[in-house]
Design a protein around this nucleic acid. Structure first.
Lengths: 244, 244
DNA sequence: CGTCTCCTTGAGGTTGGTCAAACCAGGTGG
DNA sequence: CCACCTGGTTTGACCAACCTCAAGGAGACG
């Protein structure tokens, strides 16, 4: 139930937001040195999640928010009849668990798509701390709000784009987020399977595959399994027309 | 830019959460008498919005959250090429404007579908007040989180349901929300057009119309223009299978 | 080398989109 | 009161996009 350190790696007992490379992107965005220090005390532990493992499951009771420190996650909702859908992918610096605040239970499950590390932030304490630290409060609200906005973008995608447009928007969105995290160039690795992409985009796996094929044939992309290189960003952007 | 009272109706200068019938559903959910009193002071004004008018538009700068006091709204996102999509419908007791917190600008526009009244809550003050009032803070966080969860539900709908399932889920969701607000019976009035329903559900207007026809032919619904009566709730629920 | 999983490709079927016309309710004005 | 107009809705015929089913390929791993 607690940490599961991978070989050769021991996790620190105390978080180190101050020296974390994600500081500018993550919850401590606008905090002063002093405030960061207090936040670090709150983050009791970091936790390792092995590829394929759940960080939390839908229905489990909610205790904490998690900041992705390294790695990659997907979140899924499932309806009772077994239909499942991926609602998002989370990378370093992004928060997991926001959905649980409302009801006290997690409404989605979060699964690591590669070995990942998260910072655990007990929510009651975080809330209490936010009450006395306006910057933190503001930052938390921003994260919540941005999540809503992001979902609206996805809604627009599912509701009004066709298959190739969705895939284009998806890839550009991924690339943008990766680049903000220091990724160089137009080449990157998909952490998720075709099936997961399809689920996220409301498409079947075969359609995703065909679209990749088509975009490659037209010279917009180079696709080698999970390795993607964007050749014609501008034309891709044209396809995706105004979707994050 | 301020209130626009409809004929025969003068709006109070101070909100009256304490006596508002929506108190249990709205932001003041868990507040004590005393706390409610303070919140009322913050809600400087109520504002009337005529049918078809915008409460706020996408891109406008964000100042306040709005609680719907009466009436009905839709929120829309638009991509730059003119595609527009409805992202949600809001009724009494629900909040508008949560999307603006993240960037300081509204990312959607909110349009009244009937003459409506909202309570205006300047966000800076609300945030400040929340810092000193744990119940309020918690309530705000819950609203933000629930909005995320609701969006996930919509995502699931757009991503994995077929047309009649979407419409069934949509109608049941509406009915449920109306009933929680005191609506009696299985009959209700659609405040939005077929086009708006279609936009929300990722369907074309003709498809929405055909689905209504089909569901009526099968005896699940009675549809008279905007007047809907649910005849076979159970079978409808079966169709919608596990979507809010 | 065999097996497993994931991905690709093909053929054919369905759902929902497109285009066009008719319909209907409500409002206006004669 | 009726004729007319308007905007929203319904209906039909046709078509394209995407799904389904099925088979084959390509890496990863023991």
């Amino acid at each position: 139930m607690t940490s599961n350190p991978p070989p050769l790696q021991i996790h620190a007992l105390k978080a180190a937001c101050a020296t974390c490379s994600l500081r500018e992107l993550c919850l401590p965005m606008d905090l002063s040195e002093d405030e960061i220090d207090r936040l670090e005390d709150l983050i009791g532990q970091r936790r390792w999640i092995r590829q394929g493992q759940e960080l939390f499951g839908a229905g489990e009771s909610f205790h904490a928010l998690y900041a992705v420190r390294s790695g990659f996650f997907k979140t899924c909702v499932g309806s009772e009849d077994g239909r499942e859908q991926v609602t998002g992918f989370q990378m370093a610096g992004e928060l997991l668990g926001l959905d649980g605040i409302g009801s006290g239970r997690h409404e989605v499950s979060a699964v690591a798509l590669e070995d990942s590390q998260v910072c655990v932030m007990p929510f009651d304490e975080l809330e209490e701390m936010a009450a006395g630290m306006p910057h933190l409060q503001r930052s938390l609200h921003r994260f919540l709000s941005r999540e809503i906005v992001r979902d609206h973008g996805t809604l627009l995608m599912l509701g009004s784009l066709r298959a190739d447009e969705r895939v284009a928007a998806f890839l550009l969105g991924l690339l943008r987020r990766l680049q903000r995290r220091g990724q160089r160039g137009d080449e990157f690795v998909l952490r998720m399977s075709r099936e997961e992409i399809g689920s996220y985009l409301g498409l079947k796996i075969e359609t995703v595959s065909r679209v990749f094929g088509r975009l490659q044939a037209e010279g917009l992309l180079e696709v080698k399994l999970k390795q993607i290189r964007v050749l014609e960003g501008e034309r891709l952007r044209q396809l995706a027309e105004g979707c994050s």
